[in-house]
Each structure stands twice: as structure tokens, then as C-alpha cells.
């Protein structure tokens, strides 16, 4: 276990000044900032709808978040964490350390997983902060009249679980392919396919449709965490984790 913690700390140390870490911190700030500006300057439009402003804010945010932002972010994190080793040609170096190969793989995977979790928690926290700030600055919108923390928090958690399948596929592709085009290009094509096919009756089985489908369910007031998309996502995560382990165990480092 000591090996795992050290390898995980090493991943954090290596992530300094990388795209993955910068995106994790600054993208939520950027997104929340834009939605804050939108609500602040269009406060009257918000107020006119008569809806729960928290729900309205979440609907605005989750539209883009589910189809584009979250899948793209998962791709960037999967790519960037593996790319550190590819660019430095460091896999051979890492595998000459007195560490079990599985530990190295799990630590890298766990680091990327934690980044996605941090991203989700940070954006969720910023949305809460934004709503409360608007309650003070623009009380006419009515954020102070509703308490929707549970709903928004649950949805962020659901999106987090739903993206794990996509992340696992992208992580494996980025581990195997050292270039940018193949893993990210494939991921982009599958994300587009996922968004287009999301309405299809068998789309629940396709991990890249999961976040779009969850957003659609939210619009239909279906917000329970556990559903077929989540089970598929977790199943794919588990299966690909096993595949990754076998690959890393047998992988020759040319």
C-alpha cells in the first residue's frame, strides 16, 4: 500500500504545469464564471420564468456539460496523464522502478480518477457559491427562496459516475497509443455518435451516450442516481480496468 501512495504522490508531483491539472482547476472557474455573468446580466429573464432558478441554472449548465464539456474533459485527463510518460519516453523508466507494474498503473488511473472527481466537486461547489452570490447581488432572481443543493449535488454525482465508462475507454486508448490523434480523435467521434444516438432505445448500453441521456432524464424530472446507464458505465470501468492490468503486466517496453 505504501508503494501505491508514493506512486500516487508522484503522479501529483508530475502533474505540475500540465494540461490535466490546469484544466481541472481553471475550467470549472471559467464555466461557472460564464454562467454567473449570464445570470447576472440576464437577471430579469431568469426572474420572468417563475421557475426555481437553481433548476434553471442547472438546465442551462448541464446541456453543454453533458454533451461536450464532461466527455471532452475526461478525454483530456486520460490523454494528458498518459502523455506525460509517452512524451518523456518514460514508461521504460517507470517500469524499472522497484514497483509492481499494477501499482504504477493503478496509481496513474487513480490520479486521473481523482482529477475528474475534483473537477466535478469544484464545479458543483462553484455553482452553489454562484447561486448564493446571486441571491445577494440579484435577489430578484430568487435563489434565496429555494434550496436545491441535494438535487444539483445528486446530478453532479450521477454525471461523475456516468463519465467513468468513457474515461476508462479513453484511458486505455491513451495508454496504448502515444499520439494525440488516435485516442482523442476516436473519443471525439464516439462522443458525437453518443450524442446523436442518445435517443435510441438501446443507447443505454453505449457509454458515450450516458451523460446526454442523464441530462435528458433530468429534463423529465428523473433524477434518481442508479439507472442502466450508470451500471453500464461502472461495468465498463471494471472490465477495462482488468484489461488494462493484463496489458500492463504483459506489455513489452520497446
Amino acid at each position: 500500500m505504501t508503494h501505491f501512495w508514493l506512486a500516487l504522490r508522484s503522479e501529483f508531483l508530475k502533474s505540475r504545469r500540465t494540461l490535466a491539472l490546469a484544466t481541472t482547476i481553471w475550467l470549472p472557474v471559467f464555466i461557472a464564471g460564464l454562467y454567473f455573468a449570464l445570470a447576472y446580466f440576464k437577471a430579469e429573464d431568469f426572474a420572468k420564468t417563475g421557475m426555481n432558478p437553481w433548476v434553471l441554472l442547472a438546465q442551462n449548465l448541464f446541456g453543454l456539460y453533458s454533451v461536450l464539456i464532461l466527455p471532452m474533459y475526461a478525454m483530456v485527463v486520460a490523454f494528458s496523464t498518459n502523455q506525460i510518460e509517452h512524451v518523456a519516453n518514460a514508461w521504460k523508466n517507470v517500469f524499472t522502478l522497484p514497483y509492481p507494474r499494477l501499482t504504477i498503473y493503478v496509481a496513474k488511473w487513480a490520479f486521473a480518477f481523482l482529477l475528474i472527481l475534483l473537477f466535478s466537486v469544484l464545479l458543483c461547489g462553484l455553482v452553489f457559491f454562484e447561486g448564493n452570490l446571486l441571491a445577494v447581488l440579484k435577489p430578484e432572481i430568487g435563489f434565496q427562496d429555494y434550496h436545491s443543493y441535494d438535487l444539483i449535488g445528486r446530478l453532479f454525482f450521477k454525471f461523475f459516475l456516468a463519465i467513468l465508462g468513457v474515461f476508462s475507454i479513453q484511458f486505455l486508448l491513451s495508454f496504448l497509443w502515444r499520439d494525440f490523434i488516435r485516442p482523442v480523435g476516436t473519443g471525439l467521434a464516439l462522443t458525437i455518435a453518443g450524442a446523436i444516438l442518445a435517443g435510441w432505445k438501446f443507447a443505454w448500453i453505449f457509454p458515450y451516450s450516458a451523460t446526454t441521456r442523464i441530462n435528458e432524464q433530468f429534463h423529465k424530472d428523473k433524477t434518481a442516481i442508479w439507472g442502466p446507464e450508470i451500471w453500464v458505465s461502472l461495468g465498463v470501468t471494471l472490465a477495462l480496468f482488468g484489461v488494462g492490468y493484463l496489458l500492463v503486466l504483459r506489455r513489452s517496453t520497446r
Binding site: S10, K14, R16, N89, K92, N93, Y99
Partner: peptide, 25 residues
């Protein structure tokens, strides 16, 4: 070991590269 060209994290400083390895060892 040093195998082929040195495997270095180019976005880190020389000291950070060594610190990373020192942490692992």
C-alpha cells in the same frame, strides 16, 4: 539504469525530476 535516451519529464525542472524519483525510492 539509463536505457537509450534519458526519460525525463520536460515540463519539470532537473531538481523536480530527481525529487520525483527520490519520492518513489
Amino acid at each position: 539504469a539509463l536505457v537509450e535516451e534519458p526519460a525525463l519529464y520536460q515540463h519539470l525542472t532537473g531538481q523536480e525530476n530527481l525529487l520525483n524519483r527520490a519520492l518513489l525510492l
